[in-house]
Write a protein that binds this DNA or RNA. Structure first.
Lengths: 115, 115, 115, 115
DNA sequence: GTGGTCTAGACCACT
DNA sequence: GTGGTCTAGACCACA
């Protein structure tokens, strides 16, 4: 689940994981999420690291929390995450991908063969 | 040109730049490359950092250093870079791209529209 | 009414609310206050939390508890609350406010315009 | 300088301090700021805590950093901070202050006497 | 030297 | 039980 030799920081991998749970409709809006400590145990990570993932998502309004109770998926989180990730994908990932692709002498039909 | 707040290390951004020059046939095999100093000034970067980019490429045989003269694009560099970058692209970039794409509800035909 | 993502503790938000009711003469001295349960339901809060608000006010003599009957606004509560809040206001809130005000380039006459 | 018994978290006190340095024109835009470790020593705080203050400000674009070099006051930081703090002041602090003031039976002319 | 991430573990306030 | 803050200290990559 967790990739410790990835160059991407662990806390970011965790917040990506959370976003994916939301995108995949596994965690519904308004629903309570696993506690920081549960996530930490589940992912074999320090609670601080898990906490940091939640913090990040809280800052952008995807997650809310109630003191002493836990973290919840914010209302509108699905759309927010989808919009954000799509924007990022189209504006950053796609152009970069296309550029590499062309430079390496491939086209989109080749990609179909690899996938 | 240089992105100082990217997560990608600067020396890697430079060596990517160099590889791209080679792939785009802008720097021919056997040709002399700009000096470390020139690169450093051009990219507003510490000479040590520019040096490290050359070093990395030298280690994998893409660049050759003739003492007292300068750095040169190695013979066979074009093929070497192309092969390496293609492998990386197909094994890492493509699968990752496809995964993101699917999660966000797109398919390869959509991508054609964005590109 | 209740702000769950505020830094101010919920029990304090509740006891502030109660004090304000007293200051605004909405709850008279000697009068019976809503039960802990009612408050808890009204504010969508755990009864323990509502209880803690009452407890706090009971400790400083603003609220009295008659066992089996309920909570009452203590005699002299109005003056007590007013004095306490005024002291707090003048010693803490005012200096802080003035400091921020000056740093942001405003003066008290500007404030009149905003109010 | 640092208030450990304040209810406000230390890392926030530090980022407030930094904002104030900028507002007071003590740290100019584009200038290099003390390193995380220097701040930590200066404020007698753990480097992690100092780091967190910078992170917060980086997230809102007031601070920039160059890897391996240090943190810098971002271009436009002065205006950004001033605007942000003013907005906060006018929309949150002032109404709250006025409300408390009125409830406690004071008016703005009284405040002049206290200040 | 710089920032950045992570762990381990403590302590606190809140519900 | 929950989240939140903080410390101490380690390790890493980068310039």
């Amino acid at each position: 689940m967790m990739n410790f030799s990835d160059n991407k920081p662990i806390y970011q991998q965790i917040s990506d994981f959370i976003c994916n749970q939301i995108l995949d409709k596994k965690w519904a809006e308004g629903g309570r999420m696993p506690s920081v400590r549960e996530i930490a145990v589940l992912m074999e990570v320090n609670p601080n690291t898990a906490m940091r993932a939640f913090q990040t998502l809280q800052d952008i309004g995807v997650v809310e929390n109630r003191r002493g109770i836990g973290h919840f998926v914010a209302e509108g989180a699905y759309d927010a995450v989808l919009t954000m990730k799509r924007k990022e994908f189209i504006e950053t990932d796609v152009p970069q991908f296309i550029k590499s692709m062309k430079r390496l002498g491939y086209n989109l039909d080749d990609i179909k063969g690899f996938a």
